[in-house]
Every structure is written in C-alpha cells, then in structure tokens.
Amino acid sequence: MPPALSALLGRTRAVVLCVIADHPACTTTQLAQRAGISPASASEHATTLRSAGLTTLTRERKAALHTLTHLGLTLLNTNGPAPAGT
C-alpha cells in the first residue's frame, strides 16, 4: 500500500480501499475478513469511502457488494508527487 494513501485515508481505511480494489463485489463480511477487522468496522469504513465517492455499493438479495468507482481507481493508480529535485 502506498504510504501517501495511508497518510491520506488512515491505515485501516486505505487497507479497506485496497481490499475492495483487489476483490471487486466483495461482501461486507468478506471485506472484514480480508482486511482483518470486524464486520462493523468494515461497514463503517466502506460507508465513509462510499460517501467520498471512492466506492459504490450494490445489493444482491441481503448482501452488500462493494466495488471501486472510477475515482477510487484513479486514486489508487496515482503515483503521488515527484521526488524533490526532478
């Protein structure tokens, strides 16, 4: 995980975003397991990321499925600032 992403979002939220990127359409339970956090925490972080426009939520029966938005993908694919002196 890029250090700048962790600095921007916080470590856990950055992990959640990366898990969603690596496992599109994962459920909240799967997200929690893969991120190593509780389902309640996963839901809270996913809600914050969704409110920021970085992820989207779709429902399939009772399951909530999390996926990156174009903005979330762009954030993950940004290389960050150029090193000083370049």
Rank of each mutant, 00 (worst) to 15 (best):
P3V: 06
P3T: 09
A4V: 11
S6C: 06
L8V: 08
L9F: 06
T12D: 13
T12Q: 12
A14R: 05
V15A: 12
V15E: 09
V16W: 14
C18L: 14
C18T: 15
V19R: 14
V19T: 13
I20H: 02
I20G: 03
I20Q: 02
A21V: 04
A21H: 14
D22K: 00
H23M: 07
A25L: 11
A25E: 13
C26F: 09
C26L: 13
T29I: 10
L31S: 02
L31C: 09
L31Q: 01
L31W: 00
A32Q: 06
A32L: 06
A32F: 04
A32I: 04
R34W: 10
R34A: 12
G36N: 10
G36K: 07
G36P: 09
I37W: 01
S38V: 03
S38G: 12
P39A: 13
P39T: 11
A40Y: 06
S41A: 15
A42N: 03
T47S: 11
L49F: 03
L49C: 04
L49V: 05
S51F: 00
S51N: 08
L54A: 04
L57V: 14
L57H: 10
T58W: 02
T58Y: 01
R59V: 03
E60S: 08
K62D: 00
A63R: 15
A64Y: 07
A64F: 07
L65C: 04
H66V: 02
T67L: 10
T69H: 11
L71G: 05
G72Q: 13
G72L: 14
T74Q: 11
T74V: 04
L75F: 03
T78Q: 12
T78D: 15
N79C: 06
P81D: 11
P81N: 10
G85Y: 02
G85F: 02
T86C: 06
